[in-house]
Design a protein around this nucleic acid. Sequence first.
DNA 1: GATGGATATGGAAACGTTTCCATAGTTAAA
DNA 2: TTTAACTATGGAAACGTTTCCATATCCATC
Lengths: 362, 362
Amino acid sequence: MAETNQREATIRDVARLAGCGIATVSRVLNESGPVSDTSRRLVVDAARELGFEFSDVGRSLRNAVTRTIGCVVPSINNPVYAAAVQGIQTVARANGHQLLLSCTGYDLDEEYAAVKTLIGKRVDALILTMSDIKASRAVELLHNRKLKHCLLFNHMPGIPQRSAVDNCSAGFRVGLAFAEAGHDRVGYIALRLAQSDRAQQRFEGLSAFCQTTGLEAPALLEIEEQSRNLDQRLSAFLIANPAVTGLFVSNDLLAIAIIGALRRLGLSVPGDLSIVGFDGIEFGQMLQPTLATIATDPHAMGQASAYMVLSSILRRPATDTLAASADFEFRPGGSLGRPPSKDALAKKLQLLRQLSPAHASF
Amino acid sequence: MAETNQREATIRDVARLAGCGIATVSRVLNESGPVSDTSRRLVVDAARELGFEFSDVGRSLRNAVTRTIGCVVPSINNPVYAAAVQGIQTVARANGHQLLLSCTGYDLDEEYAAVKTLIGKRVDALILTMSDIKASRAVELLHNRKLKHCLLFNHMPGIPQRSAVDNCSAGFRVGLAFAEAGHDRVGYIALRLAQSDRAQQRFEGLSAFCQTTGLEAPALLEIEEQSRNLDQRLSAFLIANPAVTGLFVSNDLLAIAIIGALRRLGLSVPGDLSIVGFDGIEFGQMLQPTLATIATDPHAMGQASAYMVLSSILRRPATDTLAASADFEFRPGGSLGRPPSKDALAKKLQLLRQLSPAHASF
DNA sequence: GATGGATATGGAAACGTTTCCATAGTTAAA
DNA sequence: TTTAACTATGGAAACGTTTCCATATCCATC
C-alpha cells in the first residue's frame, strides 16, 4: 500500500512554476486560446515536471458536466449483462466518458439507492436495467429530475429505451418452435419470477401462443434461489406434470443448470425432455447438445443505449449503425428435439417418483 | 430521451426556500452540528420540496475525496474478471464507495489511458489488472504520485497486491496432475502469450515441473486471436507434436474453445487428448466431461483487493475475513484421463494429416 | 442589572477549474 | 507621432460544498 496521499499538483502550482497566470496554463494545456511560444514551453515543462494532471472534479464543478455515465444492472456475473456493460463501456470511452457501475443484485432497494447515489454523483446520463420496472421506485426519482436516462432490457411506456427485446414476442416464438417440433404440452421455468418483469413477459408470450393455438396453458415452475434443492424442485415439478415434454427456461444460465439437474435425475436432453433457453449466450453453443435458445445481442444493445444517451449529451447526431440491436431470433439447437413416446417418459418418471423420497432427504 | 437538463437544486436554493443560511442547511442534512427544531423542519421540508440531493462534485472538491475507486480490467466478458469486479463492487458499495470501471481489451495503450483518466477523476484508489505488468507504462504513473492502489491477478515486486494466485506454482501443479495421470509429454496453449504475464507464469510453472522431473519441455502453441482458424492452428500443432497427450490451456475460456475445436477435428477428450484449464469457472463443471482445472476464487480476490484499498482509505482496520482468497487448488475433471495408446492417437493424427489441406483452405 | 457561558446561526474562505473581461504590449495604418 | 487594431496575458468570478469563526440570542448566576 502506498503511503499517505500527498496533495496533487494543481493548475496554480504549474502557474507558479512557469511564472505565469493560471489562465495561461489552462489555455496552453487545453489548447483553448492564444499563447506565445515561450509561455507554451514554460507551461508544458512545468506541467511535466510536476506530473500535473487536471482535476476532473474542479472541472466538473465549473462545467456542470462530469463526463460520466451511470450504469445500473442486476449483476455482471450473468454474461448477458456483462456483455451489455462491456458494450456501454466501449462506446462511452470512445466518446470520452467514464462508466460508473452499480450492480444491484436484483434488489429493489439497492436499485433505488444506486440511482440516488448516481444522481448525487451528477452523472451526465443513466442507463438502467431494473429487475421489475413496474415496481421500481427508482424511476420516480428520474421523473421530475430531468436527468438523461434510458432503459436497457426493460420496457416502460413513459421512459425512453432503445434496447430491449420484445420478450413477449420472443416467448411466443418459443411456443411456435416447440409446436413445430411436435410438443403439445410445455412448461416454463423461471428464477424469481415475481422480481423479473422480463421473465414474466416471456411467460406471457408463451402462454399467448398456447392459447391462440388451443394448447393447454404452460405449467409453471418458479425457482426462488439457484440452490442445491433445484433437483428436488424439478423432480417434483416433472412428476406433477407428466405430460410436459418441452421446457422453456427463462434464461440460458438457468437452462444450463436445468440440463445439469435433469442429467442428475437420469433424464436426457432432448431424449426425454426438450429445452429452450433465452439470451443466446456463447456457452450454450459449447454444450453437447447445443442449447436451443432465443439469440439476442446484449453487447449491441449496450452499445445502442450508450449511443442513445451520448448523442443527446453531446448534441451531435449519434453515429448510430446499430438499428437492429434489439432484434432476436430463434436459434435451433440439439436441446430441442421431437417429444419422446408417452410411454418412455412415463416410465422414467415412474422411476423418478420412486426415488423421490431419497431426493427429498437432502 | 428526457428534455434538456435543468439546473439541479443547490444547497443555496434550499437555504433560500427555508429562509436560513447554507451552513444551517448543511448542518441539518448532514446532521453535523447543532440546529434548532424549527430550522430542522424548515430545511427538511424545503429540501424535500426541491428534490434536493447534495452534489458530490462540490463535496469532492471541498473534501478532497471522491468516494470513488477506479478499476481497470481487461474485459468483463471473461467470467473471471466479471466475478472479480462484482466482488470489488460489492465491497466498495458496502463502504459507501462507487466503482469507476474501465475495460481495456488487453491493450497496453488503453491501460495507460485508463489509468491516466482515472487519476484525473481523482479516484481515491485504483485496483488494476494489467495484461503485462512488466511492460506496463501505466504503473509508472502511479509510482511518483502516491495514489493508493493495488494489483489484482498481477504480481509485481514494488507494488502492493493482495490477490493474485501464484501462477507459477499452479502451473507446476498442473504438470504434476498430468504426470500422475500417466502423461509424459504435454503441451501448453495460450492466447496472446506475449501480452499476458499470467499466461507466461503458468507456462513457466509447467516447464519447471517438466524440468525437475526430467520430462521433455512442453510444446508451446500460441494463439493470436480466438478466431476461426483455431482448428487449423490446433491441427497443425498436434501433427507437429504427435507425442503430446496432455494439453494445459492458459484459461478455461480458451480450454472450452479448444475442446470444441478438438471435437470438430474428430478427436475426443479425454479419449485422445487430456485437457486441463485454468480459473475454475462454473461453466467448466457443466460440460461433459467436466473440465479439469485450477480452481481459483476471483470473487473473493476482488473483495480482498477492495478491502485492502478501502481499509487504508478509511483508516480503520479492515473487516477482513478473506485471508485465503488467492489460494488455488487443482480440481480434477473428466477432461483429464489416462493417455491413449500411442497407436490409437497416431492413427487419428494420420487421419488428420490427410485432412489437413482441406482445413488449410478455409 | 451586569457578566458569563451556552446554543444556534450565518458569513466567508477554500477546494480546482474555465472563461469573461480588462489591460499591457506590439504592430500597422493614418 | 498619434490612433487603431490586434495579440497575449492575468485577475477575478463562478460552480456547490464544508467548516471555521464571529455574532446574536438566551438563560442562569452573581
